[in-house]
Design a protein around this nucleic acid. Structure first.
Length: 489
RNA sequence: GGCGGCGUAGCCAAGUGGCUAAGGCAGUGGUCUGCAAAACCAUUAUUCAGCGGUUCAAAUCCGCUCGCCGCCUCCA
């Protein structure tokens, strides 16, 4: 079995194999550091975190590069508004980004290069493009000459004529063709500058990714990723620059994920309808967000809503509850007792890993993979529920082993990595701390109810039960006559 | 205008030619209980926006219609 990946370049799912045996080189376009990141950025980092973890699970070595754009028009503008330097502004939001990543539980990429730390490579690449006739300098600006590059538009499926027909291209007298794009921009007074053969200036937006990916991954590498909105013009332009420069294919596989939407509209800074990662994590745990993100295939739009997050939380609780119930079971059982687990159920358990891998091999279908896990959770619950007082050793071994497998498979999505008993306990304690009732009051009500029940005063007993329930306290009458309680979560 | 995508149960969401259309949430019924709660189990689409076509066979392929979204400008 091999991993298949949908390649934007071909528009098809293709069997994947790395150019260098066993070693995958992956470049993902990171953030422009001028503001806090929103859930759309979170989806991007979560998706590639999952992809990297899965490819490693499948035995590949993965070199994962994710850059920072720390110099560009938006950063300059924002820095001026805040009366600070672009460097200070970018570093502030890079620090915030790293905090967000840690809070989301993302593993760090292999390398996180910054544009400003690779200016010599950028300048060298631009000079090479000028030397080859793919770029030209006009009054300190350097532009890429799109009609010199034959395959321009191949990634996004456009051609220059169609694009020219669009009326949204800004007129720039300096450009030989309106579609030409800037490789280097001369600086205005007060802007950050680097010396270059074309005078003081700064890099254009697209060139940094071409220069940095070449520096760290080579002229041709395996996978380049980002959001769908980067297909044009960003990735199209990267291809043009890199292939014109090297004369070799740039990237084998292009992965683009879908957007996060709110009320079915794209979440974006320009629309102002975005929620930051910080705002979300103040309300929900990172794990709930991960569950929500991975319950939909990565190329499908993901519509954010409070209801969807609540559903995700309930679903996650179901998984943890199953694991917690198994963790409460004894480790050793009766070796002489016949197992309660039926043949069909055992078969569902035994095929879990294969079905999970098949789903994930199919373009990282996390939604389907999670479906398989839920199916097995149901099987585990069924077996657990049917267990006698002294369970068969085989049943206990199966339950414990499967719980371990589920944790391992879920870990690829960053799910179920907490101790299940601690998860349930922490959740209840958190809820209890927000309630208007304390443990003493609960204990006293339960004692009063116990008396009422002994006197068969059911109406008073039920009344107390309802009072407690009103305060989100659920009670459970045990077989031995005692009453336990827990917080409703 | 050009290019691309989507439309599956109350909601979310898998499914890329062929076994009973995964799974989650919500709802309903049941096990348990004095009654409950929790947990668990069962159940919920003769049908996949609509119409036509290809095929022995289509949610899956092709065409048209309707509706929604994205890119073509900074954007994950």
């Amino acid at each position: 079995m091999t991993v298949s990946i949908y390649n934007t370049k071909s528009g098809k799912k293709e069997p994947f194999s790395p150019l260098e045996k066993g070693h995958i080189k992956l470049y993902v376009c990171g953030i422009t550091a001028y503001d806090y990141c929103h859930i759309g950025h979170a989806r991007s980092t979560l998706v590639f975190d999952m992809i990297v973890r899965y490819l490693r699970y499948r035995g590949f070595q993965v070199t994962y590069v994710r850059n920072f754009t720390d110099i560009d028009d938006k950063i300059i503008k924002r820095a001026q508004e805040q009366h600070t330097t672009t460097e200070e502004l970018a570093n502030r939001f890079i620090t915030a980004f790293h905090e967000d990543m840690a809070n989301l539980g993302n593993e760090p990429p292999t390398l996180e290069p910054k544009a400003t730390e690779n200016i010599p490579e950028i300048i060298a690449m631009i000079q090479g493009l000028i030397d080859k006739g793919f770029a030209y300098e006009v009054q300190g600006d350097v532009y890429f000459k799109v009609d010199r590059f034959d395959h321009y538009g191949s990634l996004s499926g456009r051609n220059l004529e169609d694009m020219m027909a669009g009326a949204r291209i800004s007129i720039n007298e300096q450009k030989q063709n309106p579609m030409d794009f800037a490789l280097w921009k001369s600086s205005k007074p007060g802007e950050p500058v680097w010396d270059s053969p074309w005078g003081p200036g700064r890099p254009g937006w697209h060139i940094e990714c071409s220069a940095m990916s070449r520096k760290f991954l080579g002229e041709t590498f395996d996978i380049h990723g980002g959001g769908k909105d980067l297909i044009f013009p960003h990735h199209e332009n990267e291809i043009a620059q890199s292939e014109a420069s090297s004369g070799k294919p740039f990237v084998a596989t292009w992965i683009h994920h879908g957007f996060v939407t709110i009320k079915d509209e794209k979440m974006s800074k320009s629309l102002g309808n975005f929620l930051t990662i910080r705002e979300i994590l103040a309300k929900y745990t990172a794990e709930v967000l991960r569950f929500f993100v991975f319950s939909t295939h990565y190329r499908t739009p993901l519509d954010f809503s409070e209801t969807a997050m609540k559903d995700a939380e309930t679903g996650l609780d179901r998984l943890y509850t199953c694991l917690a119930e198994i963790a409460r079971l004894p480790g050793q059982g009766d070796p002489n007792r016949a197992p309660a687990a039926g043949k069909k159920n055992v078969s569902k358990i035994n095929t879990l890993v294969d079905r999970y891998v098949k789903a994930m091999d199919n373009d990282f279908n996390t939604a389907q993979a999670m479906g398989h896990i839920f199916e097995v959770v149901k099987v585990l619950n069924t077996i657990r529920q049917s267990l006698p007082a002294t369970p068969a050793a085989a049943d206990l071994a199966l339950l414990h082993a499967t719980a371990t497998t589920i944790k391992e498979l879920s870990g690829i999505m960053g799910l179920l990595q907490q101790d299940p008993l601690a998860y349930i306990k922490a959740k209840q304690e958190k809820t209890l701390s927000q309630l208007d009732i304390d443990q003493t009051a609960i204990a006293s009500l339960i004692t009063e109810r116990k008396t009422a029940r002994e006197q068969k005063n059911w109406s008073r007993a039920d009344e107390i039960r309802d009072i407690l329930l009103h305060h989100k306290i659920e009670i459970k009458d045990e077989a031995d006559g005692s009453t336990s309680w827990q917080v409703k979560i």
